[in-house]
Amino acid sequence: MAFDLHVSKRLGDAEIALRLEAGEGLTVLFGPSGAGKTSVLHMVAGLLRPDRGHIRVGGVELFGDGIDVPPERRRAGYVFQESRLFPHLSVAANLRYGAGRAAAIDDVVQLLDIAHLLDRWPRTLSGGEAKRVAIGRALLSDPAFLLLDEPTASLDRGRAAEVEGAIVDIRDRLRLPILMVTHDRLQAERLATTMVEIDPIRT
C-alpha cells in the first residue's frame, strides 16, 4: 500500500475527514476548492497535526499510535501550490537545499529541462519555470514519495502541459508514489492511477 491515510482534523468550524488507501502510481485527491485537500497534504508532510487517525506511506508509520515523525524525517517531496522557492537563494542553491552530496542534480535538471535557469533568481522565473524548479528541488531531497498541490494551477495551457509531462515522467520512470491534489477533473483523469474524491467540508 503506497498511501494509507485515515485522518480527521477540526479547523475552525470545519471538520476534515478522509480515509484513503491507494497502491502504486499516482493517486489524485479530487474535490472542490475549500474541501481541505491542501490540509490533507500538509498532514501527510507533517506540517499539520491531525486530531486523530494514522498516516502510513509505503508501509512506514508517519503518524498514529503515539508516533509523529517530524517533517524533516518524513522524506516527503512536497511541491507546494505557490512553489515556495527560497527568495534569497539562486535556482541552483534552491535545488541543492535538500540534496545530499551524491544527488544526481544533472539528471533531475535534464528531466525537468531547467539547465538554463540554474543561475537565475526565483523572482525572475515565470510560474511554469518556478513550478519545475520546485519539483526538481523536491525530487533532489531524496523523497520516498511526492506530494503535488495543484501543480498546474495558475499556468497557461502550454506550460501546464510541460509540467504534466514532467509528472508523467516521474510517475513512469522514477516510479515514486505520488499523491496529487487538483480541482481539474480532466487533469485528474489524464494522470491518475487511482482517483479519490474528497467531500465538501461538513460543518
Binding site: A45, G46, F80, E82, G98, S141
Partner: peptide, 13 residues
Amino acid sequence: RRLEGAARTLGAG
C-alpha cells in the same frame, strides 16, 4: 512561515 515549512519538508531540522 511557509518558507520555513518548505525547508522542513526538504529535510532541514
